[in-house]
């Protein structure tokens, strides 16, 4: 099973309802979004004018670079197939691809907030939510679209799909040939692969030829330089536990106080 989403640009009118419904459903901070709508054109495509939209969200990729980038200590997790009830246990970092439904998810309690996954995502579908702070990370936690798994498990459509005013967003199992999403793929719905790469995005677009050309022309991303992302992630994972220890011993507090004191004494002298 592989959940996926189709966005039918013939139907989409670029109203942004998807973006706002998601914000309300998942209490996303004002300045971030788990999905977005970008307005493209009017621009020349060949000899004609075109104008369309790029409603984007996490692609829950077949080979998600964000999962590889996560430096958090792996932990054993048991996954369950919603249909058959079958379970399997895997060792995963703080973000993973679900072996049964194909979605990419995050364990907030284990996320160290280093931002490596955010940088590795070519679609900029992840952000660090600064409101999510705990003992593991004071910088916030990585956050993104979950394909509304909690809603789907409760028998509901994803929030963006439910509110879409023209039924331009269609959600379902791409592996099921009878599903509407699979039919769209057969008709030619395509994902936005990064330049020269093949990571298998599962949010896919369907539309008039000129609109698709405009979308791919203006919105095809590039893969981040994984070398530097990985290096940063490694450093973060090495440094974080040390910092935590330092904080536990009260060293950070002391250092902070001295720093403040120094500054304030200087002020007083003036």
């Amino acid at each position: 099973m592989q959940y996926g989403m189709i966005i039918d640009l013939e139907r989409c009118v670029g109203c942004h309802a998807c973006t706002i419904a998601c914000k309300a459903e998942w209490e996303v901070p004002v300045e971030f979004g788990r999905n977005w709508v970008k307005r493209l054109g009017p621009s020349k495509v060949g000899n004609e004018l075109a104008s369309t939209y790029y409603p984007g969200l996490c692609n829950h990729c077949a080979k998600p670079p964000c999962v590889d980038a996560c430096p958090a200590d792996p932990a054993e997790m048991t996954f369950k197939d919603a249909k058959s009830g079958k379970t399997t246990t895997l060792s995963v970092a703080a973000t993973w691809k679900d072996p049964f439904n194909g979605t990419v998810q995050i364990d907030k309690s284990r996320c160290i907030g280093c931002g490596a996954c955010v940088e590795s995502c070519p679609y900029e579908a992840r952000y660090i939510n600064p409101a999510m702070v705990d003992d593991v990370s004071s910088d916030g936690k990585a956050d993104k679209c979950t394909y509304c798994m909690p809603r789907v498990e409760a028998g509901l459509a994803p929030a963006c799909v439910q509110t879409c005013i023209t039924n331009a967003r269609i959600f379902g199992d791409l592996d099921d040939p009878t599903s509407e999403v699979a039919k769209y793929v057969k008709k030619g719905a395509k994902g936005l692969e990064p330049k020269g790469e093949s990571i298998g995005p599962n949010s896919r677009y369907y539309g008039k030829k000129k609109d698709m050309t405009l979308l791919f022309q203006e919105s095809t991303p590039e893969l981040a330089d994984m070398g530097s992302v990985k290096r940063r992630a490694m450093m973060a994972s090495m440094v974080k536990p040390a910092m935590r220890k330092a904080r536990d011993l009260g060293l950070l507090g002391l250092a902070g106080a001295m720093l403040v004191k120094g500054l304030s004494e200087k002020k007083n002298d003036e």
């Binding site: 942004h16 309802a17 706002i20 419904a21 914000k23 309300a24 439910q162 509110t163 005013i165």
Partner: peptide, 25 residues
Amino acid sequence: LMKLEGNPKSIDNGTAICARGNAGV
């Protein structure tokens, strides 16, 4: 009020509402 949604009983807008409707909160 956490969220606004289209009334499932609606035969007008259905469960759909636009960006502004969603932002009524």
